[in-house]
Computed example of a mutant assay.
Amino acid sequence: MKVRILGSAAGGGFPQWNCNCPNCRGVRDGSLRATPRTQSSIAISADGIDWLLVNASPDILAQLAANPVLQPARALRDTGLVGVLLMDGQVDHTTGLYMLREHRGPLRIWCTDPVHADLTQGNPIFGVLSHFCGVDRRVLPFDGTPFSVDGLEALAFSAIPLSSKPAPYSPHRENPQPGDNIGLLVSDTRDGRTLFYAPGLGAIDAPTWQAMQRADAVLVDGTFWHDDEMPRLGVSSKTGRSIGHLPQAGDDGMISWLDRLPATTRKLLIHINNTNPILDEASAERAELARHGIEVTRDGMEFSP
């Protein structure tokens, strides 16, 4: 199995276009040792030729251009993408679907029923795409039932619901439902190696923890260092947990959970907000992650669990 990081930042990217927090200002003027990032998305492949796009960020066209492996050029019009799997219905994970409207034939999209409701009612992307390539919607079970993806038959997929919040435009924004946000387990049937992927993770319950313990690599929510990171900087009154993101720091933070995994588990963070001090490669927070054996993903990175 191959996993390619197309984008590693949270919504807005890094630097965010209208932000002058210390991180964004520093990466712009060169005073900060940091790497710009596009909004989070990954691609998964069994053979390095056919790929499943997991989340379609607003930066998808730049991401495709930066990753030529996704364009095998076997025909006049071609793509290495066999389809799209959506982890949630958030704008920073679905807007890129508009950019794929030239697809030849209906675009295969795996999503849960709550996400389908978000994208047909609250933000009717699927309706708009019906006027272009069309959508071949595949129901994504989120009770742990295994499912397959056309073109990636060597990989077995299963999903579980996560504690998080639906998109602001969701018909059930104030009444979160199972399936609003999922964690994804992907196993290679040839060698048994397994990835757990969860870019949005508000809390770790028993099923989530069991899934993480099963995996050889966990690629999880790295949005905030502190729960009150945005209020501290004055960029928002919202805390990380209130919008569905478990911070890294603290007794019940992501670091403490990742420390409990087996020493052989590869631990990686994705969906990193522009305010997070771990973006500063010379920061004490980045050094602390290194001491715990936790990696910060970057755009263009590829690994195998």
Score class of each variant (00 low, 15 high):
L119C: 00
P72A: 10
A217R: 12
D259V: 04
S57N: 13
P199K: 04
I60A: 03
R137M: 01
P36C: 07
G48E: 05
F157C: 02
R266Q: 08
P106R: 14
S31P: 06
Q16A: 00
L81E: 02
N181K: 04
T35L: 14
I278T: 14
P168S: 04
R104Q: 15
V186N: 08
A249P: 01
A10Y: 11
S41N: 02
T112A: 03
D180Q: 07
T145F: 11
V135L: 06
G48R: 02
S170N: 01
D259T: 09
R77A: 02
P178Q: 13
L269N: 05
F147G: 02
L64W: 02
G122L: 07
G12P: 02
L32S: 04
T264G: 08
S256C: 08
L162M: 09
I278K: 08
V128F: 14
R33S: 07
R108A: 13
R190M: 06
I125Y: 15
P36Q: 02
A284I: 10
L100Q: 10
W225Q: 08
M254W: 10
S45Q: 09
A206H: 15
G26K: 00
F132C: 10
Q16R: 12
S45L: 02
P171Q: 01
N123M: 00
C111W: 11
L233T: 12
Q177M: 10
R138Q: 14
S57Q: 12
S256W: 08
Q16H: 10
N276I: 01
W209A: 12
C133N: 14
G48M: 06
V54Y: 06
S158C: 06
N181Y: 03
G127Q: 11
P199A: 01
V91P: 03
E102M: 11
G122K: 02
P231C: 13
N274T: 10
P36I: 13
T264M: 03
D136S: 15
L85S: 11
N18M: 09
A9V: 04
K238Y: 13
S304Q: 15
P168F: 08
L246P: 05
E288D: 09
E288P: 07
W110S: 00
P231K: 15
C24R: 03
H103P: 06
E302G: 05
L140V: 04
C21A: 04
V54W: 05
Q248W: 04
R286V: 00
E153V: 05
G30E: 14
V27T: 10
L289M: 07
G244R: 14
F126K: 00
R77K: 12
M212Y: 05
L100H: 09
K238W: 13
D228R: 14
R173M: 00
R74L: 08
T223P: 00
L81A: 03
S45E: 02
F157I: 03
V149E: 02
N273C: 10
A215H: 11
Q248I: 03
S256P: 05
M99E: 15
L289H: 12
N20A: 12
